[in-house]
């Protein structure tokens, strides 16, 4: 499977100063979430931290693109701080906040983005455990290959697990969001700034605990000089390679 990726951008707390490893080490005590100046105040007031970081990277990824792109959104846990609060309210037999409930569905983020940008293109929302990032990339590839779309906005977000769930963590925790614009490689994309990559996978059962999420590993690899890499999850090995430009 071959795709061309451009405008990849990532947000995590202090991403201007800290590497991903340093940010994980640093912890998340005093996070300043993105301000989102492009969102009108009456709409901004309802956005959670999760929504803010995801909408920021989505906005940055398409800032110089004139047409409306279909979207694929992926997140392993979704807006879990919000969902877990709702679940706690249910358990305590409290009434649920209509606002929180309305924005707790998995496709809330791309839907908010579609409202804010008046984009009426199709949206998919995906979650697939440790493979959430790579499986969503497959969904992007399938949509491109089907001919229904030339370019797709891919948004990925995950927030550090809330206290209640930290005991179940099997990956390092860092609140982060990634967005990029994906198309099929072509003569045209050869002339554009970005990276053409190939990826495939094999089924492989293994126990992977304490690794870095694939979304972060992928972004690191995309930005470094390494031509190939392998991302491993509990169920798959993902083989990634960058296309080498032929002179």
């Amino acid at each position: 499977m071959d795709v061309f990726i451009r405008h990849l951008n990532i947000w995590y707390a202090h991403c201007d100063e800290l590497t991903v490893e340093q940010a994980i080490e640093f912890g998340e005590n005093e996070i300043v979430w993105p301000r989102l100046d492009f969102v009108p105040p009456m709409q901004r007031r309802r956005l959670s931290a999760f929504a803010k970081m995801a909408l920021l990277v989505a906005h940055n990824a398409v800032s110089d693109i004139k047409k409306d792109l279909p979207m694929v959104f992926s997140s392993r846990h979704g807006d879990l701080p919000k969902t877990s609060t709702l679940l706690a309210d249910l358990a305590d037999k409290n009434a649920l906040s209509p606002t929180a409930f309305g924005l707790s569905v998995h496709n809330a983020i791309p839907s908010l983005f579609s409202i804010l940008t008046n984009n009426k293109q199709a949206i998919n929302a995906i979650s697939a455990g440790q493979d959430s990032f790579m499986m969503a990339l497959i969904d992007v590839y399938v949509r491109l290959k089907s001919g229904l779309a030339d370019e797709i906005l891919f948004i990925y977000a995950d927030q550090k697990l809330p206290e209640t769930y930290l005991g179940f963590q099997d990956e390092q925790q860092l609140s982060h969001a990634i967005a990029m614009v994906v198309s099929l490689p072509s003569d045209e994309t050869n002339m554009t700034k970005g990276e053409s990559i190939s990826f495939n996978f094999e089924h492989f059962s293994q126990s992977i605990i304490g690794g870095m999420p694939a979304s972060l590993l992928f972004t690191q690899w995309y930005n470094n000089n390494q031509q190939k890499t392998v991302l491993s999850s509990n169920h798959y090995n993902w083989f990634l390679s960058k296309h080498v430009a032929t002179a």
């Binding site: 009434a95 209509p98 309305g102």
Partner: peptide
Amino acid sequence: LGLDSIDALELGLAIKK
């Protein structure tokens, strides 16, 4: 003030509580 229908539900809940 410019509140909308979700605000109405939210506010109703808060008044009730």
